[in-house]
Amino acid sequence: MIHGKIAVCVVGAGRAGMIHAVNFAKHVPQTILAAIVDTDRTAAKAAAEKLGAENYYTSCNEALSDERIDAFIVVSPTKYHMETVKAIAASGKHILCEKPMAMTENECDEMIRVCQENKVKLQIGFMRRFDESFRQAKEMVDCGEIGDVVMVRSNTRGPSIPKPWMYDIKKSNGPLAEVNSHDIDTMRWFTGSEFQTLYAVGGNYRCPDARTEFPDFYDNVVLAASFANGMQGILDGAQGVGYAYDAKVEVLGTKGCISIGSVRGKDVLLCSSATQKGNYPLVESWRNLFKDAYLKEDRAFIDCIVQDTEPFVTGMDGKMAVRVVNAGNISIMEKRMVTL
């Protein structure tokens, strides 16, 4: 600890990393931002200076030498998550790991095992569970306001073209992982069940630069699923849509339906990638839409350390999402239904 506060180190100074870093530096009273880690020394230094962090490093191993640090926020590329989390857990530090948790289920199992062996907290970054609208809808479902849940439909469509490294499905696990992990977790959360069967189709409609070298890459995906408890699910994901950051959920029950997201009744909404204008202001980024949810997520992580309680979003939640991502990619590539 530093000055009687929980000392936090953020690993990754990108967009999501900086959201967490700002929260721990300014908005979570029990914490102090002790360090920033980024392989780009210039980015690490700039972030540390901007937020008043005492130190910055170019590797997580360097940061682990500072025994005062109590917890790490892992916001590095997915392929590095397992080794990074294992090293942090072995040093006895608590961990908030951004989604996707890892590349494979086996990697998730290893992360869970090492954290349990070293008795450290492992929380996964599904911040939508902390969003006020999502939580209100979940309470309504749990209270039976729409009867029994029949179907959950969740979509996330991002406005920007993917980064070039995402084109290689073997390295990124594709949009199902990078974009739609949140939808997968949302569907599990609202159904209270696990995916049983799924069928997914994907296609590359907006990224011509990827077609020759990465023929398996998809920027649009539709996934239909059944759950172990008999409920149904539909996932709709896209990258590079241009018009807005578009995240919506519908929970259909036997006696009604709950909608989360922008629903305007009979309004006619024009969404154009050419003008980026509609009949009312559109959400430009997930950073705006879920700003408060990230803060509540970060506060919940610190609370589970202070109170020694189980994280609200566990390693098992992360693993189950990775399982569905991998099964969905198999379904897309092999054009068949997959049973989990």
Score class of each variant (00 low, 15 high):
Ala47Arg: 08
Ala48Lys: 00
Leu51Cys: 04
Asn55Gln: 08
Asn55Gly: 00
Tyr57Ala: 00
Asn61Lys: 05
Glu62Tyr: 02
Glu62Asp: 13
Ser65Pro: 00
Arg68Gly: 07
Asp70Asn: 15
Ala71Asp: 05
Ala71Ile: 05
Phe72Tyr: 14
Phe72Arg: 02
Val74Pro: 02
Val75Asp: 03
Thr78Trp: 02
Tyr80Asn: 06
Tyr80Met: 07
His81Asn: 11
Met82Phe: 03
Glu83Pro: 01
Val85Arg: 00
Lys86Leu: 13
Lys86Ile: 15
Lys93Trp: 03
His94Pro: 04
Ile95Asn: 00
Cys97Arg: 03
Cys97His: 06
Glu98Ala: 12
Lys99Arg: 12
Met101Pro: 07
Met101Asn: 09
Glu105Arg: 11
Asn106Leu: 09
Glu107Ser: 10
Cys108His: 08
Met111Trp: 04
Ile112Gly: 05
Ile112Trp: 04
Val114Met: 08
Cys115Ala: 04
Gln116Cys: 09
Glu117Met: 08
Asn118Leu: 02
Lys119Val: 14
Lys119Phe: 12
Val120Arg: 01
Ile124Trp: 07
Ile124Cys: 13
Phe126Thr: 11
Met127Ala: 14
Arg128Asp: 10
Arg128Tyr: 13
Arg128Met: 13
Glu132Pro: 01
Glu132Asn: 10
Ser133Thr: 14
Gln136Thr: 15
Asp142Ala: 13
Asp142Lys: 12
Cys143Asp: 14
Gly144Phe: 08
Val150Asn: 08
Met151Lys: 15
Arg153Ser: 15
Ser154Trp: 07
Asn155Ser: 15
Asn155Arg: 15
Ser160Ile: 09
Ser160Pro: 00
Lys163Leu: 14
Pro164Arg: 07
Pro164Ala: 11
Met166Trp: 06
Asp168Gly: 02
Lys171Leu: 14
Ser172Lys: 01
Ser172Pro: 00
Asn173Thr: 06
Asn173Trp: 00
Gly174Arg: 03
Leu176Glu: 01
